[in-house]
Design a protein around this nucleic acid. Sequence first.
RNA 1: UGGAUGGGCCGGAGUGAUCGCUCGUCGGUGCUGCCUCGGCAGCGCGCGGACGAGAGGAAAGUCCGGGCACCCCAGGGCAACGUGCCACCUGAAAAGGUGGGGAUCGGCGGCGCAAGCCCCGGUCACGGACAGUGUCACAGAAAACAUACCGCCGCCUGGCAACAGGAGGUAAGGGUGAAAAGGCGAGGUAAGAGCUCACCGCUCCAACCGCAAGGAAGGAGGCAGGACAAACCCCACGUGGUGCAAGACAAAGCAGGAGAAACGGCCCGCCCUGGCCGCAAAUCCCGCCCCGGCGGGAUGGAUAACUCCGGGUAUUAGUCGCAUCUCUUCGGAGGGCGGGACGGGCAACCGUCCGGCAGACAAAUGAUCACACCAGAGGCCGCAAGGCCCGAGGACAGAACCCGGCUUAUGAAGGCCCAUCCACCUC
RNA 2: GUCCCCGUAGUUCAAUGGAUAGAACGAGGGUUUCCUAAACUCUAAAUACAGGUUCGAUUCCUGUCGGGGAUA
Length: 132
Amino acid sequence: MSPPHPNPGTEPSLRLPARFRLKHSADFAAIRATRSNLAGRYLVLAGRRVENATHFQFGLITGRKIGPAVDRNRVRRRLREIIRHHQQELLPHWQWVVIARWRAAQASQARLEQDWLRLAQRLGILAPRPSP
RNA sequence: UGGAUGGGCCGGAGUGAUCGCUCGUCGGUGCUGCCUCGGCAGCGCGCGGACGAGAGGAAAGUCCGGGCACCCCAGGGCAACGUGCCACCUGAAAAGGUGGGGAUCGGCGGCGCAAGCCCCGGUCACGGACAGUGUCACAGAAAACAUACCGCCGCCUGGCAACAGGAGGUAAGGGUGAAAAGGCGAGGUAAGAGCUCACCGCUCCAACCGCAAGGAAGGAGGCAGGACAAACCCCACGUGGUGCAAGACAAAGCAGGAGAAACGGCCCGCCCUGGCCGCAAAUCCCGCCCCGGCGGGAUGGAUAACUCCGGGUAUUAGUCGCAUCUCUUCGGAGGGCGGGACGGGCAACCGUCCGGCAGACAAAUGAUCACACCAGAGGCCGCAAGGCCCGAGGACAGAACCCGGCUUAUGAAGGCCCAUCCACCUC
RNA sequence: GUCCCCGUAGUUCAAUGGAUAGAACGAGGGUUUCCUAAACUCUAAAUACAGGUUCGAUUCCUGUCGGGGAUA
């Protein structure tokens, strides 16, 4: 949602390869064990601190209640896009999981982003905003 | 020929920019290791870049059929399951198509008094109901070597009579039912009845026609005969099971194992026959070759487990075997398909060559903006026809080993076909 | 992904191919009570959907839809 940067030379990298994603059920189970779930209208966010990490890692969960495979895939892509745009504001040494609720399939991109930002603020994985 | 309405089929969702995702190829660069000092290798193939490629007609449901893989092997019977009119065509098979036969339903259709026959159209999981067994509720007198409730009929007894009773005849009429042992008419009779007759139907035989399913002139029989096999079943034909989470290679570390027999294994279940195995045969592959052998390699080690029987008291080394962790590798991008070129053929089509066709494993196609196109959620003006503003929202839906069908969902723009109605033209 | 199973009142379960589809709990109305509860009584309410076989289908067959289970 950030407007096109005036000079692309100073634009920080917005790449978000699959390396930063959680892929082991042990990680998901560890985050689940922290019982740190924060619920929004469309999403649920949970996370834990990992002290020696150099980059944050995230996982996405889109259950069957969201809908058929088309809807589940689309929700995952949209959530990745939101995280990709905000990755410079996110603190490292965190592992967290975003769980999509069933309403997320009908939500617009702007509403999803708003919901996610609010939850990220509450969990404390956002870097403090540089005062203008 | 044109238009409207309805239905079916094909088709598969615009353009551009920016930032991204997955895979491949090629440079650059960082770190580590080796080293003949210039290269090579590695990094769970780091970091950044260039180029190329990147979901469907149904990718879906998982309803069929194959390929492929494993389960020592081969043959047979039973069981289980599946399929079911005939011919031809396409296909590996499932399946699809064309034509024919039969049944059934329908028609302001034709003939006929009617029954019925013919014609046209729709539908059909359409072998067999004398191989056997079973079921047919309720109603009804009677429901499957039929029966007699109300009736009808004459006879006998009683009675003046109406009528009542008795032993019979009958199945036309009434009534019940999904279904009641041919139909209409005439004769006949006490009343009736295929009892007799005409026509029609039915059963049996059948010239002849047809590749066949089957049809059928004609003859005989006064009528034998219910339905259900998507009830059990019979007949014919077919089918081994499990499924890529199949399976194969590599494989640290830790722990455990290794004999013999009863017997077990051997294509799910039960059984039979043969071959064979339990450390050397069998099966498969490769090579040689005098064609039946030789050599090499691979596969292969009771049970899921408890229990039972027998034997035994050996566990150290080596060897063999097992195959877990795995951001491992393979299986897995082939087969087929469509595109182009050339050649052959009147053509449908056939052949050759070229280049092309996603590939993951917490799973790649998205987001934003702009411009087009389709749209009315809405608002304003107007008596109305209509005009203006605003523009939400863009069909069904996402590959997971591959392929062929079936079914279901949706089918924009554009195109094709069919039916009905209207208009015009020609004969 | 693959392989299976199941759909009956609001809920939990019944019902040889015979329809008026049953029972318990629950819901609603009434009787009783000063008012509730309890008790008694009455009522409503269902075969997932669409076809087919059959005289007749919850049951048999086919196809959709929905739910659940096993499997690394």
